[in-house]
Amino acid sequence: MGFKLLSKLLVYLTASIMAIASPLAFSVDSSGEYPTVSEIPVGEVRLYQIADGVWSHIATQSFDGAVYPSNGLIVRDGDELLLIDTAWGAKNTAALLAEIEKQIGLPVTRAVSTHFHDDRVGGVDVLRAAGVATYASPSTRRLAEVEGNEIPTHSLEGLSSSGDAVRFGPVELFYPGAAHSTDNLIVYVPSASVLYGGCAIYELSRTSAGNVADADLAEWPTSIERIQQHYPEAQFVIPGHGLPGGLDLLKHTTNVVKAHTNRSVVE
């Protein structure tokens, strides 16, 4: 069995187990497998329904001669939608809004960016022009300005110390501490036991640490421990890039980060 097929099978099995364990909360999309990078042309966006009122959005972007996937989250909030992270750029984010209108038909009224990198804030200006209120932590807003990236308009308070959590509509926002970046936030959907790890969490097929220019490698494993301790009931975990899975993604990420750190020390 090929690795790609095995990865998709694991996603399907995880979703099936969740649907059985929580039949009222989960209505997993039966329309197909989780979209992969090879299936999404740059400039297009796919939506994948995880649970009743919960979707991931998947886009792709060219970077350094390669094409990478990027995940975000959409959560229903009454007759409105909360968006977590842009679709990595203005063109993708405009396509995301169009796809949401086509498939869901509810307005996106608020959006949260989970850290300051372009795959999370690139497209904020498109959201703002569409009347979406954009939010991020003060740290993310400051770092985005320093980096020359787009800056969300509103500040999220109460997320300055490791372990801080605040309720934001249908989700809980959690600051686990520094990891992929010093400002990275985690998003949890309690009604569906869905954990969105953003770039602080890796997919299972990833074996290298990737972009760690703004990471705190020493603190990252401790931050992941905080996530595990705060959300032990999480059933569906979405990484910032690639295929979702279960809580095993947290341990896998820790292993990859520690291996990278150990290699760096040896070198």
Score class of each variant (00 low, 15 high):
T253A: 04
I100A: 06
N211V: 10
H252M: 03
Y12I: 11
E172H: 04
I17S: 13
M18C: 14
V265K: 12
G105C: 05
I20E: 15
G65I: 07
A87Y: 00
S162I: 10
W88T: 00
L185H: 02
W88Q: 00
D79V: 09
G122A: 10
A136N: 02
K258T: 12
A111D: 02
G210E: 06
S160R: 12
L243V: 15
D79M: 11
T153S: 12
N262R: 11
V257S: 02
L159D: 01
Q228L: 13
L204H: 11
E33D: 10
S162R: 14
I50W: 08
L156R: 03
P107H: 09
S137M: 15
H241N: 01
L83T: 00
S56G: 15
S22H: 10
H230M: 14
K4D: 11
L217A: 07
T134P: 01
L249H: 02
N184F: 00
T253D: 01
H241P: 03
G198A: 07
V146K: 14
D52C: 06
E33R: 12
R263W: 10
F174M: 13
Y196T: 02
T93Q: 00
I74F: 04
Y175L: 01
G163S: 07
E33Q: 11
V256D: 04
P107K: 14
L9P: 14
P244G: 04
A21D: 15
K251P: 14
A87E: 00
G246D: 13
Q229H: 13
L13N: 08
V266S: 14
V171C: 00
G2S: 13
L127N: 00
Q103T: 13
G245K: 01
G65C: 04
A136C: 06
V11S: 13
I238C: 02
N92A: 07
W220A: 03
V67C: 06
V121M: 01
V265P: 13
A192P: 06
N211R: 09
F63H: 09
G32H: 10
I227G: 04
N262F: 09
A129G: 11
A111M: 10
S38P: 11
E225A: 14
I224R: 03
T207M: 13
P170L: 05
H241L: 02
Y68C: 05
V121Q: 00
G198E: 04
D29G: 10
A94F: 11
P190Y: 08
V166G: 04
W88K: 00
A234L: 05
L195R: 01
Y48M: 15
R128M: 14
Q103V: 13
P190W: 07
S38L: 10
E99I: 11
F3P: 06
G2N: 14
G163Y: 05
L10H: 15
T14W: 05
G242D: 05
S27W: 12
E267H: 13
T254E: 13
P221K: 08
T153M: 11
N92T: 07
T253H: 02
A234C: 01
A129L: 10
F168N: 00
N262L: 11
S30K: 15
S38T: 10
S160H: 13
G158H: 13
P69L: 14
L247E: 09
S38W: 11
A95Q: 12
G158K: 07
P221H: 06
V121P: 05
L159N: 00
G72S: 03
T93R: 00
W88Y: 01
D119L: 01
E99L: 14
H180S: 02
E101T: 11
G78K: 08
S137A: 08
L204G: 12
Y68I: 11
S208R: 10
S208Q: 11
V171S: 00
T86P: 01
L13D: 06
N149L: 14
L5E: 14
V132N: 00
A179F: 04
G242C: 05
A178S: 11
L243Y: 14
G246W: 03
V257Y: 03
Y202M: 15
S264I: 12
I100F: 03
A95E: 09
A144P: 05
L247Q: 11
V212Y: 06
I151M: 09
Y202A: 07
G123F: 03
E150A: 05
L159H: 06
A218G: 12
E44D: 10
N255H: 09
I201V: 14
S264D: 13
R128E: 14
V112Y: 01
L173S: 00
L81W: 01
R141H: 07
F168L: 08
V67K: 15
P244F: 05
Y188R: 01
V256S: 04
H252Q: 04
L47N: 03
K258E: 14
S139N: 11
V166W: 05
A200I: 07
R128N: 14
E99Y: 06
G131K: 09
S30I: 10
P35W: 09
S22Y: 09
P23T: 10
S22K: 14
S181P: 03
L247V: 15
V166E: 07
L9E: 15
P41A: 12
T109I: 10
H57W: 02
V37T: 13
I186Y: 01
P35E: 07
S38C: 07
D52F: 08
G123T: 05
S205L: 09
G2R: 10
I20T: 11
R141F: 03
G158T: 05
R110E: 05
N149P: 04
D52N: 13
R263G: 14
A59D: 05
E147A: 15
E147Y: 14
K4Q: 07
A21W: 11
D248K: 09
S191F: 13
F63Q: 08
A25T: 13
E172L: 05
N184D: 05
N92V: 01
L10A: 12
I238E: 01
S62K: 09
G78S: 09
V265H: 10
R128F: 09
Y12F: 10
G245D: 05
S155M: 14
R46V: 09
F26G: 14
F63E: 10
M1F: 05
G163V: 05
G131F: 02
F236Q: 11
G65E: 13
I227L: 07
S223E: 02
R263M: 13
V37A: 15
N149T: 08
R46K: 09
L127M: 02
G122N: 15
R142Q: 13
P176F: 01
S264Y: 08
D77C: 03
A144L: 10
N92W: 04
L243A: 15
P239M: 01
P152S: 05
V256K: 04
S193G: 13
Q49D: 10
L9T: 13
A21G: 13
D164W: 05
I151G: 03
Q49V: 11
D85P: 00
S139T: 13
R167T: 13
V266A: 14
P221C: 06
V112E: 04
W55K: 01
L143M: 11
H260K: 12
Y48F: 14
E39S: 13
V45P: 14
E80L: 03
V189L: 05
E150S: 04
Y68L: 07
A179K: 01
G246E: 08
A130Y: 14
R263C: 06
G43D: 09
G148S: 08
D64W: 09
F174H: 00
V108L: 08
R46D: 05
L96W: 00
A95R: 10
D214P: 07
Y12N: 12
F168V: 05
R263D: 15
T140Y: 05
D52H: 09
P69S: 15
A144K: 04
I40E: 07
S160I: 12
N255C: 06
Y175T: 01
R110C: 05
I104F: 07
D125Q: 10
T114Y: 00
K8W: 14
N92K: 04
Y196A: 04
F63K: 07
G148T: 06
Y188F: 10
G197V: 05
R110W: 07
E267K: 12
L83F: 03
D77R: 02
E157W: 12
T153Q: 15
Y188T: 01
A192D: 07
N184K: 01
A66R: 09
L6F: 09
S62E: 09
S161I: 12
A178H: 10
Y135N: 03
S27Q: 15
E219L: 08
A213Q: 11
I17M: 14
V187R: 02
R167S: 11
V171T: 05
A87W: 00
A129P: 03
A51N: 10
G43W: 03
G32C: 06
D119G: 04
T140G: 03
L195M: 05
Y202W: 07
Q228K: 13
L243W: 08
V75P: 02
L250C: 03
C199E: 02
A98R: 14
G53T: 12
D216R: 08
G123Y: 03
S139Q: 13
L159C: 03
R141T: 05
T60V: 15
Y48R: 11
E203T: 07
P170G: 06
